[in-house]
Simulated scan of single mutants.
Amino acid sequence: MRYHLNVLRFAQRLALTVAASGLAAFGLTFVTTDTAVAEFEIQESGVEKGEVELEYRGAVHWGFPRRERESAEEGEGGGALDEEEEGEFLRQSHDIELQWSVTDRWMLSTALSADEPLDEDFDVSSVEFEPQYELVERDGNGFGLAFLGAYGFATRGGEADEIEFGPIVELASGRALLTTNTFFTSQVGEHRETDGLGFEYGWRAQYGVAKKWGIGVEMFGEIEDLSNAGSFNDQQHSIGPTLFFNPGGDDDDDDNGNGNGNVNDKVAGPAKAEFSMNVGVQFGLTDLTSDTALKFQGGLEF
């Protein structure tokens, strides 16, 4: 009987993995037009030696931000603007990231970002390398802290490289988990358009409603140049709900990601999963943010 259950569980995991791969492939072949939009990523603080994870992040956006709409109205993208107004215009962007935990503290990542701006072909827009160091390990309830640094190489002519650095913080209590990413950015090279540091943030508040399911709220924002930040409406900010699904792990395993082993106090998240995914919607809060975005993230750990 136990043998048959194990076979069934393996089949379920295989089917979910195939489904996730299919969704990722579909996203990569779905062609749209517009400028690149940063992906919706919440980086976690945990590092486990020897762990390798392949992650896909994709998003489809509706509605021009004000700056792009004004540019289109001036004749730089009028056709795309007409399509958007008729409900035919969609925007998308994609990230594929590979993470490798070299030690119990150090993790190295590399990511490819792809999109299709107005009047350009679909192509890779940047290649990024990220070292991450875990300063405080979170074991179940409590506090986790890591520091991330990144260098992004722009692959299109006329665009600047970018560096990024800052802390990753996790706070867990029972079924609840709060994760924050607060990063400073700076453009590098002859094509830089800003003089000072920029700022990007993302936070996620999630709650485990069942052993493998969680719900939450995520918010993301960006200030391109802190020395000329302007008003809130001159920045990019969005917020929205997210649904988490963590099918990895055995049904008789009481640890569901926060490490305390209590079936009634668990965080539904990808920390211990072989495969995990989340789907969410983001609503733009400012004129420089897309009106609505549908986001998908899937990860497969080895």
Rank of each mutant, 00 (worst) to 15 (best):
R91K: 12
H94W: 03
E74N: 14
D104H: 07
L81G: 04
F89G: 15
M107D: 03
V102N: 12
Y56Q: 03
E55D: 07
H94G: 06
G87D: 10
E86Q: 09
T103W: 11
F40R: 10
E68I: 03
R105F: 09
Q43G: 02
F89E: 14
S71P: 03
L90T: 12
F40L: 05
I96N: 01
E39S: 04
F64T: 03
V102S: 08
F64C: 07
E70A: 12
Q43P: 09
G79R: 09
E86A: 11
G87S: 09
L108K: 07
L90S: 11
G75L: 07
G79C: 11
E86C: 06
E88C: 02
T103P: 00
L90M: 12
R91E: 13
K49F: 06
E74A: 14
S109I: 02
E41I: 13
E48C: 05
A72T: 01
F64L: 14
G79T: 09
H94M: 04
I42Y: 00
H61L: 11
F40D: 10
S93G: 13
E86H: 07
F89S: 15
E97V: 14
S45Q: 15
Q92I: 04
E88F: 09
T110Q: 14
E84R: 05
E53H: 06
R69K: 12
G46A: 09
P65N: 08
S71Y: 03
E84Q: 07
L90V: 12
E70L: 15
W62C: 03
A38H: 01
A59C: 08
E83V: 03
E39H: 04
V60S: 14
E76M: 04
Q92F: 02
E84M: 09
R69G: 05
E70T: 13
G58T: 01
G58D: 00
E83Q: 11
V37H: 08
E48Q: 14
